[in-house]
Amino acid sequence: MKQFTRFQGVVAPLDRANVDTDLIIPKQFLKSIKRTGFGVNLFDELRYLDEGQPGQDCANRPINPDFVLNQPRYQNAEVLLARRNFGCGSSREHAPWALEDFGFRVVIAPSFADIFYNNAFKNGLLLVVLAEDTVDRLFNAVDASPDYALDVDLERQQVTLPDGESLSFEVDAFRKHCLLEGLDDIGITLQDEDAIRAFEAKHRARRPWLFRDSA
């Protein structure tokens, strides 16, 4: 997994609540059996004026000029500023894959949907929860100044504004550790292989009907 320590990037604002995973990456792109290449179809239905198809060359598609990520000033954005309940809907991990493939490293919002939250961290995408009024304030600030950038420091759990103001955020210790070190969950879990085997033996003895092969 990609490591995340400290990072500074331009912010793009997506002023819309309840952004669902279908909006982040429409289902026709879920047909891929790969983990990469979803970036050109991130927010496909908002970004282009036609209906996108997997495998298509997006360079010649009609662009929706009103969509925020199409505006020149946000072309190199790496931090996405969003509204409440971002990432609701399906469990598709294609959503964080698409955000990352596009170039986002951080999403800031007042709240995130549970499964999306999990999926993002497992892919090195940092999600930062800030209070609703703070997020409001950031939306106004981004709007007012081109190239508005934030400094995000995971180690210190701080977002620093261009004027030097620091905002702290919560992140649980395990997720933080994995992200800082770029650790793979499976490897960590398999260090507990003995505990899993011991549990499994007990579980089988107690509830054999859960194991088809002991029926």
Binding site: S90, E93, I115, N118, N119
Partner: peptide
């Protein structure tokens, strides 16, 4: 529900 990394 779980994500693909969790499926793995």
């Amino acid at each position: 529900g779980i994500g693909t990394s969790e499926v793995e």
